[in-house]
Structure formats: structure tokens, C-alpha cells
Amino acid sequence: MARLARLSVAGYPHHVIQRGNNRQAIFLDETDYERMLQLLREASARHRVGLHAWVLLPGQMQLLATPQDADGLPRMMQDVGRAYVRTFNNRHLRSGTLWEGRYRNTVVDPDLLLHAMACLDSLPVREQLARSPQGYAWSSSAHYTGERSERMVTPPTQIWQLGNTPFAREDAYRALLHEHESGHGCAQFQEAALGGWAHGSPDFVLQLQQLTGRRLQKSQAGRPARKAPEAG
């Protein structure tokens, strides 16, 4: 069955997943990670995409981003993907494809954005790459907990819900990260991006479906239930 067209809706947060072909590593050393961050900084500014959170893992990267224009996100990902592969292949004396295919993404309910950010930033702990989310160098978690300042971060307005001062917000985000280290509630978030389905409340999905004119939820397996016969 043909894949659904990717969702790209201006003004809404998107969860993006880009993985290596056959699950191969896409980052082999610190220079690779730094190169990807550089490309993301440049392309997000060029195409007016606000990056809220990201995590770079050895075999994949995941982003949470809001494009100002519907074509901003696909253009950003195209620029980043092409430039990174050229650099990666030249540095590591290889040729051919690096990505498993087109990136996967979904639109995220703004009311769930803080939850989505915590799912991304705590992923290195679940992957056993770090003992704490903020201890991992290649994610946005340390920015929101105050350990490091990252200039390409565009904090979403929802971050103000966490407290009235920077210290209160940092403490609250640490607590949110700890709550999500076990992956609580994160599986559906990942599945939505991989399947191209909207992630949010029924009201949000209905609103987005009316806006895009596209089916945004996975169909239920099996045949539709038969209607009960009317009483005679």
C-alpha cells in the first residue's frame, strides 16, 4: 500500500524521525554530531523552522519543530539530508545512500508538546546511552535544565507553564524528564510519527483533519461492524 503523503502544517509542532539505512550508524564520531547540529542551525533559520527539541542517536535523529510555512520543514530536511550525506561520505570514504528513505513525521497536539519534548530528551536513557537525560551531549535536554545554552533552540510558549522563573522552569523540566525516563506514554508518540498519523486528542485530530482534508488516524483492523437489524 502506498505511503500517506507527509503532513506539513504551518504553525503546528511536528515530530520528525530520520533513521539510517538498514539501521546503520549515521554518526560515527563527535565531528559528525557537530556537523549535523551546524546544518540544523543554518537550515532551520533559512527556512523559518523553530526547533524546540532534538536528539541525535548513533542510528537516528529525532526533532520537534514548528514551521512558519507549510514547505519550510520539507525544505529544511532536504537541505540537511543532502549536505550531511556529502560530508559523511567524504569524511568516511564511502558512497551511496545513508538514510533508510524519506523522513517520517507527524503533527503533534500543542497541548502535548511538553510531553513530546520530554519523550525525545529522555530517549538516550532508555537507549542506555546516558545515565541521565541532561548528561547526554547530543540532545536539547541540557538547554532546558540550565546546564547548557543552545542558540538554535526556539522554546515553545508551553515552556512558560512550568514556572514563573528560569530556575523553577528548569527544575520542573528535570522532573518531567525523570517522569519520562521509563518511556511512559512515549510509545504512541513514536508510532504516530512512523505511521504518519496525527498525535493528539480526538478534538485536535478532528480539527486538523478538517484543515488538511486527509485521514489522520489509523483505520481499525477488520471489517466494519454490521448494523443490528431494526425491530419489526
Rank of each mutant, 00 (worst) to 15 (best):
S122K: 12
L28Q: 09
A43Q: 02
K218L: 13
Q158E: 15
G11Y: 06
R86G: 03
V9H: 00
L194M: 08
L120G: 05
D109G: 04
R148C: 05
D79F: 05
H178K: 09
A175S: 12
V153L: 14
G50A: 15
P166N: 09
V55N: 03
Y33S: 05
P74I: 09
A2K: 11
Y33A: 03
E181A: 10
S201C: 08
R3V: 03
H52S: 14
G72R: 02
W160M: 07
S140P: 06
S219A: 15
W197P: 00
P133S: 02
L37Y: 00
T31I: 11
W54D: 00
I26F: 00
I159N: 02
W99K: 07
D121P: 10
L37S: 00
D111K: 14
T97K: 12
N164Q: 13
H184P: 00
D111L: 14
L37G: 01
A168C: 04
A53Q: 03
N105M: 05
Q188V: 09
D71H: 05
T31E: 06
Q24T: 11
S122N: 06
R169N: 11
M77L: 15
S132L: 11
D69N: 09
Q209N: 03
N105C: 15
L114P: 01
Q210M: 13
V107L: 05
R6N: 10
L112H: 02
S141R: 00
T97C: 04
D32R: 00
E179W: 09
S8Q: 11
R48N: 06
A192C: 11
E150F: 10
H15E: 02
D171R: 15
A228Y: 08
L57W: 05
D121E: 13
K227M: 11
M117G: 03
Y144W: 03
V16C: 01
V49R: 04
R86K: 13
P156T: 10
Q24A: 07
R151A: 15
A221S: 07
P67M: 10
E230G: 09
D69R: 12
H199W: 15
D29V: 10
R126K: 13
S182L: 08
V9R: 04
S219G: 10
R86D: 03
D69W: 11
W160N: 05
S8Y: 08
A228T: 11
T157L: 15
H14I: 13
